[in-house]
């Protein structure tokens, strides 16, 4: 394209170049989808957006790294024989920060296009509504996964520095990673759907906080009471109703260093996995329906 305007600018006279057609490469759907995904991932951390929008994600990330840094310092200096917290449990312990990150950043990816109706411009382009929803969800999922994984990796490096058993550490890390992937997709689906329905940012954040923090709190209290009353299966059953208790339950079942009020075992394990997967699928279908509806207005 650049050689089609030879030397016109150099004479110092303003030339109206007229309309130039574009005859270059046009990327296929996969490449367009990848661009949307990468842009969405960057936007989740405020990159490529205003300076102000970087504050929240990086502040939360910093806060979730701080305990990991302290743990590493303690382990390396005192020569403890093991990390005081498992990789998966670290994520569980910092769940408030993870939830806040999701609640705060989901509206960036799921409310804005609907509120300003730029969704129409996307859907008038090659990507279909399902593809658009899928890419948005993947962006937030990976943003969340990174949010959880970065402190986990700091812990892991600390463990290597302290010369703990590498095999044990790698095994724990991989388990945590798998569980984090599942959690990220789940939380991204839930907060994404909430944000796509309540287009006012405030409402979306409050809605996500209600589900991720308040509901999880209630579930946890009920689980503890049930376990205390020796109603173990009731305790485990209640765990199906929040993303964090699903995460903790699966981590417990898999021996990833997280303990639930009552042990998750037997048929409960596939039930937990199934509920998690169905929840993700349901959220995705809801998102597609929502994007389609607003996009046709």
């Amino acid at each position: 394209m650049s050689e089609s305007a030879p030397d016109l600018g150099r004479s110092g006279v303003i030339h109206d170049l007229g309309y130039r057609h574009y005859s270059g490469v046009r990327e296929g759907t996969p490449a367009i989808a990848r661009t949307l995904f990468v842009t969405g991932l960057r936007h989740a951390y405020g990159l490529g957006r205003s300076g102000k929008s970087k504050v929240m994600p990086f502040l939360l990330l910093g806060m979730s790294l701080l305990p990991a840094a302290i743990v590493v310092g303690v382990v390396v200096l005192t020569g403890l024989g093991d990390l005081p917290v498992s990789y998966a449990d670290y994520t569980n312990q910092t769940q408030l920060l993870v939830s806040l990150f999701a609640a705060a950043q989901a509206p960036v990816l799921f409310s804005r296009d609907l509120r300003h109706r730029s969704i129409v411009l996307y859907l008038a382009r090659p990507l279909s509504a399902p593809m658009f929803a899928l890419m948005r969800w993947l962006s937030l999922s990976l943003a969340l996964l990174l949010f959880m994984l970065v402190p986990t990796l700091v812990l892991f490096l600390g463990a290597l520095l302290a010369e703990l058993d590498t095999g044990d550490q790698v095994a724990g890390l991989l388990k945590a990673l798998v569980l984090q992937v599942l959690l990220a997709t789940l939380v991204a689906g839930i907060t994404g759907l909430i944000s796509s329905v309540s287009l006012r940012r405030g409402f979306a954040v409050v809605g996500s906080v209600m589900v991720l923090i308040v509901l999880t709190g209630v579930v946890s209290v009920v689980q503890n009471i049930a376990a205390f009353e020796d109603a173990d299966s009731a305790s485990v059953a209640v765990g199906l109703f929040s993303p964090w208790s699903l995460f903790a339950g699966l981590a417990d079942a898999w021996d990833a260093g997280v303990n639930t009020p009552a042990p998750v075992d037997g048929a409960w394990v596939p039930a937990y996995a199934l509920v998690a997967v169905l929840l993700v699928a349901g959220c995705l279908l809801g998102l597609v329906a929502r994007f389609r509806k607003v996009g046709s207005r």
């Binding site: 394209m1 650049s2 130039r20 270059g24 046009r26 367009i32 411009l121 990507l127």
Partner: peptide
């Protein structure tokens, strides 16, 4: 939006300015 229609990064910038 040009990128969402399949143009590469530099082509999109050039077209957009145009």
């Amino acid at each position: 939006m040009a990128r969402m229609s399949g143009l590469g990064a530099s082509a999109a910038r050039e077209r957009s300015a145009d």
